[in-house]
Amino acid sequence: MQLDSPVLRRWSIWLLAAVLLAAPVYLVRATSLQQSSSEGQAIFAQKCQACHTIGGGRLVGPDLQGVTQRRDLSWLKEFISAPDQMLASGDPIATQLLAEYNNVPMPNLALSPAEVEALIAYLENPAAGGAGNVPPSAAPAGPGDAARGQALFSGQIRLQNGGASCIACHSVAGLPTLGGGSLGPDLTQVVQRYGGEAGTASVLVSLPFPTMQGFFATRPFTPQEQADLLAYFIWAGAQPAPQQTTSPAAWFWAVGIGGALVLFAGMALFWPRQRRSISEQLRSMG
């Protein structure tokens, strides 16, 4: 058979397409099968402990002691899987909890159904998992320095474990005109919203938010950084609200459009070089 025959070419394209389709499917399946179903305690320590205790009282969110008796099992599963959707659908219990806990919604932690099962198994019987083994949220090291916290927030001092500084996504009142980032929420009142110093401190330990987890799970704040940031947030939250000026987004649009106009003006300098072509000149002569 000729090497360049259409039949051979068509078949090789089909074969290639099949391999391309099959390989990533295999990859994804392989990664998702690695999760063991008996990891409830580990998941709790990694993703829940920042906001919840088991028998230690309320933190950012409720104490989860006996939650499996308090709530309907299917409700619990649904809520742990997708709290954001539960809230959006106006579920009465979820709405009431939101109001009770300073309007801090529980983030969607993107847990797989198997992980939710593992968590519920652990919550049903924390002692079986060896509750004593769950270390209490590490307390920040001593008193923090608010000025150092601000430098950490805006990036002048680098985070020791290589994390991106807070200003990349968050703002706090009192930053320069253009403020901080807006991918994440404004953190000016974070201490008030997260139920005081204890709640905020415990969130700073593990940063259990889905957007942050991917990056910060392996680059946590050091205890000193946690203390400094907490001190900064406490200080920032206590400042009087600054005068409402032009929003950073408006500044961005204004400068961005202005910059584009300058670039067009630059192009205009080269416009005379764009002479009419010979044919255009001939045509215009009639």
């Binding site: 200003i167 990349a168 996504c169 901080g180 980032g181 807006s182 991918l183 950073p248 987004a249």
Partner: peptide
């Protein structure tokens, strides 16, 4: 709307 992309 989702600043600061160059950082995050």
């Amino acid at each position: 709307a989702y600043r600061f992309g160059s950082y995050w």
